[in-house]
Design a protein around this nucleic acid. Structure first.
Lengths: 339, 339
DNA sequence: CTGTTAGCGCTTTCAC
DNA sequence: GTGAAAGCGCTAACAG
């Protein structure tokens, strides 16, 4: 007969109360931090709970205190390592803060009302959006319903929702300056046809900084999607292009990987001898010797910490004005921009 | 004044009932499939619900019918694309089946009781384990508590839990046969020091099939972990090894990527001219031209479908004996084993 | 500090 | 087909 030998079904607080010889309230209080219980009672309760294998039913308690501690993560494009790492660290950080991530993976043109429905049905304590397409309608509904919401690296006109941004303008500027410092004078940008907010800002800041440095971006190669294959496509464009370029800014490491691989495969243009390349994210792959890619680091761990911090603040204080946190970025210089 | 202009807090069924001029029971029944309601009533209710922006509170209803529709996914090693894709498809498939994935990412030696606690607190409808280390204690507790559980590609002595396996023995055999057919006679295995169940089985079947083909596996290179860097390490070992080998079986594409990259970087051994390479998973990266890696496909989408199917069956019929489903694998032959 | 009471939002008998 | 009433497991007031 082991301790947890209640071989059958759910144990409720009344059974714990009975075994401990106290009331159900005492049990509840014992599991509530800073509640008004004597040490003695709490110990009795905990002991009984242990023996019975009791666990508080958060679904029931959320009914009372309206805190489910469930947090929706809306994400997409998990094939991009940067995105999947982002989700990974978000999930881990939420867990570490006693919140439970519900992972909602969306794809292209998803029905937003379905997503909203899920969130609302489960009375989530908050929502984190990292997907490229956070339908405006979701934001609005969450705001009016008082569901805390944090947007990651998103533009947002609605001033009532919290946002955590990477310093995209700075990323663009660093890219320009680094290529310039490496001696590049005829630059190209590799991006997508319909860039997301952050990509758009990066490119804008890049071209602007180039201009102020007195150099021109002579070409732009836009793939239909932000992916490895998109990067390869851009490389093909570059090799076929009439303009001679000596430096390239890729909007993401993921694209840069495809870009570099395609260059290497065709062996027409050596990196970094004839062409320098820099990109954004600094995912682990950028550090792989085969790429050895200079990249502007966006630390997903730090990002996750900040997102959860902002979320928790809003949960505890729903009335404070929306925060916009901008996280610093930093250059990791590697061989792809070496002289 | 828009439809959903209840600019404030939660709408409950009583408000819908009032607006529709019916009882709360009628509202409940209207949202329950195959419930006994007149079409007329249901329409009235739905209309009122729409106007008020009402949504059923699953947390409350789960209290009654014990079906939270929450499903825990326990996963790890998200840096391996195969693992992150697995999680991706599982999450999507659950969603498509009206289940909500709670993502629990574990790391090395995590405290299992913490995980169990989370699952039980939320009264999950099921648990899916894909992590390499599914602590036995979690399984046991779930079984005794009647929480449906599906293990993905795991060994398991406890005959009471469902499992979905890839045909690992067949993977090993195909690898051996493919290398043999490509003319290899002196084979090596690239694996890890502490291989997971599936890796172990693959290697076992591989060496056995080699023997039956009349060739020997002359070397085994084991990295400390199953990762890109592990693959690189194995490549270094191979290049330093006294034995001449002409064919390599990597236990996963992820390792093979590091392995191939390292070979290419050192340029000592050309693939496939001097060395043929084959591995398992057939992640998209294997098809990238830079790798062009023959690989034994384990379709994560099909896997996810099967896992969810098994889970749903158990949820609906808790008493059926544990199922063990084995999914077929198939060879995708590419340049790395070409003659 | 403790037990009693009420009720969170929902579903489900059970009569009608 | 419908409403009244009971109760899922829990916590928050309120007395004591």
């Amino acid at each position: 007969m082991s301790d947890k030998d209640n071989n059958n079904k759910k144990v409720t607080s009344v059974e714990v109360a009975r075994l401990a010889g106290v009331s159900r309230s005492a049990v509840s209080r014992s599991f509530t931090p800073n509640a008004s219980v004597s040490q003695e009672t709490r110990e009795k309760v905990m002991q009984a709970a242990q023996a019975l294998g009791y666990r508080v039913n958060k679904l029931a308690s959320s009914l009372i205190n309206n805190r489910s501690d469930l947090v929706g993560i809306i994400a997409s494009n998990m094939d991009n390592p940067f995105r999947s790492r982002q989700v990974e660290y978000l999930a881990k950080t939420l867990l570490a803060n006693n919140l439970r991530p519900i992972l909602l993976l969306v794809e292209g043109e998803e029905d937003p009302s379905r997503i909203i429905g899920m969130l609302l049905e489960y009375n989530v304590s908050g929502v984190i959006v990292t997907s490229d397409t956070p339908p405006q309608s979701i934001c609005e509904e969450c705001v009016t319903l008082g569901v805390p919401m944090v947007l990651v690296n998103k533009d947002q006109t609605d001033a009532r929702v919290d946002r955590v941004l990477l310093d995209n303008p700075r990323s663009g500027r660093i890219a320009a300056e680094t290529l310039f410092a490496s001696g590049c004078r005829r630059l190209a940008v590799v991006t997508t046809l319909k860039p997301s907010y952050s990509l758009h800002v990066r490119v804008g800041a890049f071209t602007e900084r180039c201009r102020s440095l007195g150099i021109e971006t002579v070409a732009r190669f836009s793939a239909s999607e932000q992916s490895y294959d998109g990067g390869r496509y851009a490389a093909d464009c570059l090799m076929a292009a009439p303009e001679q370029t000596d430096g390239v800014f890729c909007v993401s490491d993921y694209m840069a990987m495809g870009f570099l691989d395609q260059l290497r495969l065709k062996q027409q243009i050596a990196v970094p001898q004839r062409l320098k390349v820099i990109s954004c994210d600094d995912i682990p792959q950028a550090g792989w010797p085969v790429y050895d890619l200079s990249s502007i680091r966006q630390d997903p761990e730090q990002l996750a910490e900040m997102v959860v911090k902002v979320l928790l603040e809003r949960i505890h204080n729903p009335e404070i004005p929306a925060a916009v946190k901008v996280l610093d970025v930093s250059l990791t210089e590697r061989n792809s921009t070496a002289n």
